[in-house]
Amino acid sequence: MKREDPAIVKGTLIGITTAFLAVMLVLPLVYVVYTAFRSGLEGFLAAVTDKYALHSIYLTVIVTLMAVAVNIVFGLYTAWVLTKFSFRGKRFLSALIDLPLTVSPIIAGLIFVLTFGRQSFLYPYLNELGIKVIFAVPGIVLATVFVTFPFISREIVPVLNAQGRDEDEAAALMGAGAFQIFREITFPHIKWAFLYGVVLCSARAMGEFGAVSVLSGHLRGKTNTMPLYIEILYQGYDFTGAFAVSSILVVMAILILIARNILEHRSKSRYLR
């Protein structure tokens, strides 16, 4: 016995929702692709096969892969520590992990400038070793890892908490080692949540702008990721170029949304039954 809202209320609210999402989300998305192709396919191809454009794509891929790799290692170990063991300071630890979510990307960039920049006490040592962090690729990678830091562990922790420790304890008592327990018992449970975390992490990594913008120094063809390259093109009034490179990221965003929906559906159907 479900009480339905009257058709007029229902229709109006669905109308408002659809109109709002169409204007706020779909319009900007379609407009990117439309502007990218407005001056024809040749204009688009010329823009995305430009030497600097290709280099920015290459750098984005490298930075994303590295950030995701670090976060996979961290996410898996941390989720394991946070859910399988009890220790003092656990709540503090998980608050610390979530911290990057609430820090403005500009501040994320700033803290790395303060850590590795010219005024830092580390600077002379790094300089002697010939390591450049700020205004170079390592800084971009560090900032990207920072802003995507909680994504993987956050997805896995709730699933592992729901699973409990019984199975792992049984396996441990039967003599299984940590890696064996992880591979044969824990991982099958978290497979979808883990993949979902990786998807979220890659999405944010390839699109990060603020933090990377602080750290890159904007050396064209050297330290420009795709979002930074888009900024340069846009500010140089090369709108076709800016929107052409953007359209690649739009396609990636749509693929990520689709993957997200499939993975979320899978992990839900498995754990909320």
Binding site: L25, G207, M226, P227, F243, S246, L249, A253, R260
Partner: peptide, 16 residues
């Protein structure tokens, strides 16, 4: 679609 703002890089949304 609701999560689109998470998936779309902020700079792309910005210029659009």
């Amino acid at each position: 679609m609701i999560e689109l703002p998470f998936a779309l890089p902020t700079a792309v949304a910005g210029i659009s």
